[in-house]
Simulated scan of single mutants.
Amino acid sequence: GVRDRLFHTLDPSTRVWRLGGRDHLLTDTVGFIRKLPHQLVDAFKATLEETTLADLIVHVVDASEPPAARGVAMAAVDEVLEEIGAGETPRIVVMNKLDLLDEEARRDLLVGHRDFIGVSAAENEGIEGLLDAIEAAFEETLQPMELLFPYSDGAVLSELHAIVGHVERKDGPDGVAVTARVPRALSHRFASYSVNGTPG
């Protein structure tokens, strides 16, 4: 029925995305829905719960909307992120559909908003710059760690490789010494192998 289809549209999807030699989990959450029925507000927020675990939020905005409507939608997203505890999570604001704007509208949209990244997914415009910005933002979340893995824990070392990509390693009599930059949110998973104690 309609009710079931509506809830289906609220389901986020997650997939593995490789960028900068690292695997990332990319979760595509529900978009902002104006005048959401009151009984579905909690369901809407529930779909964003995974956002509280994110290292980075990429907020995609429809740049072709009238400025007033666009501002209302952006403010509503900000409010929901605050309510679920993700207000302080690093964020990139992406203005999509630049191909639907003339030069004057583009200038009005982006000038004075250095935090906005303008793209056109349809025309593949600005995507490279967006990827660079995402990679740079992730770099800010990395925790330098010096680790020592016993040879018997090769599976954990493989997991580290999958997460961080390139590592500096040196095989020794006690195991594999590794220097790596690990996402802060995951550093606790490797803290027991740290040669400098648990990272802060």
Rank of each mutant, 00 (worst) to 15 (best):
G20Y: 05
E135I: 10
I163H: 02
R5P: 00
G85S: 04
G154C: 06
T141S: 14
E83T: 01
T141P: 04
L142A: 12
I127E: 12
A162G: 11
S158Q: 05
D62E: 07
L26V: 09
R184A: 09
R22Q: 15
N196S: 10
L40T: 04
I92M: 12
V2I: 02
A155T: 03
P12H: 11
R189L: 11
G172A: 14
P12L: 07
R107T: 03
L131Y: 10
F190N: 12
N124M: 10
T198C: 04
T198P: 10
R114Q: 09
A73V: 06
V167F: 03
A180I: 07
H59S: 12
E135P: 14
G154H: 11
H161S: 04
V195F: 09
A137L: 09
A69D: 15
N196H: 13
V182Q: 13
V167L: 02
L157N: 03
P90F: 03
E140M: 13
E88P: 00
G112P: 04
H161R: 07
G126C: 04
L56V: 13
G165A: 06
M74C: 03
Q143L: 10
T198F: 06
E49L: 11
A121E: 10
V58H: 09
K97Y: 02
L26K: 01
P67D: 09
T27Y: 10
V164K: 00
V156L: 01
R169T: 07
I117D: 14
P173T: 13
S192Y: 03
R114M: 06
E146A: 14
T47A: 12
G200L: 08
D174T: 13
V195Q: 13
A133T: 15
E159I: 00
V176C: 06
A76P: 05
V72E: 14
